[in-house]
Write a protein that binds this DNA or RNA. Sequence first.
DNA 1: CCGGATTTGTACGTATGTATT
DNA 2: GAATACATACGTACAAATCCG
Lengths: 140, 140
Amino acid sequence: MIDRRSDRAFYKQLADELREQIASGHLAGGARLPSQKTLAEKYGISIDTVRDAIDVLKAEGLVVTRQGQPTRVREAGPKQAVPLPEDFVAVGARMPTQEERDRLDLATGVPVLVVRTSEGEMVYAADSTHLVATDASSVA
Amino acid sequence: MIDRRSDRAFYKQLADELREQIASGHLAGGARLPSQKTLAEKYGISIDTVRDAIDVLKAEGLVVTRQGQPTRVREAGPKQAVPLPEDFVAVGARMPTQEERDRLDLATGVPVLVVRTSEGEMVYAADSTHLVATDASSVA
DNA sequence: CCGGATTTGTACGTATGTATT
DNA sequence: GAATACATACGTACAAATCCG
């Protein structure tokens, strides 16, 4: 529920509530969220405020929206293990550039892994990739 | 400028333009963006639409907003090199949880690096950290 | 220290467009 | 074609934080 006397913004309260439902598994990966209209009526707030809450969850990579379709909890696809090169210089992460989002077809809130070697940089969708030791024998 | 005949949403066009100015260095780290009001007047669009554009850039980790202060291009602080443990199992990245955002004081659009070892997981702000070979002799 | 100006934040409303089911 | 759902864009009003003279 939304506490109208609270200092916390309504859209943050709603985001908190939905986030909790996702974290607890009450809303599992792929599950549909109630429509914005439904949420607005249920909580007695405007659709705009509901959208603000959804935007927060999108930026956190928790949900995915597509026009004409219900908002769904983002499903992390099976991660592919990629060997970390022996000669890597550094590993970092950041949000993708516009070009990378288009090229890798990344949803909002999905970062990329960047591996720098002496040869150059490799960029992986963090969504679907994790890096493992080159000696893959120890991988779980 | 904004092409009102374009199919591309106004807020996306504005986000593109600001993103380009940041990428090109025309707006350097720490630089102030024009106020939302100024941008709205300059481009002949509503403040709400300007805010939508700013929201895009926030999610991309490009700008930071704070109430009462001008919007600024995010400054990536000096990155600290952290040795990657010899016994690491996997390295990944994701957006932080609410708790991590609070604890690490992360801005919107800043992912975290996750290092899994046999001992457990370590989480680093990708903003200020990159992982390097345990043998640090090769680090630039 | 105070008050005004500036700037972003929150919340509401309306209307229409576009994509999917 | 109809119904549903999200997307875009405009407007208003007020609140809260910061900055500056």
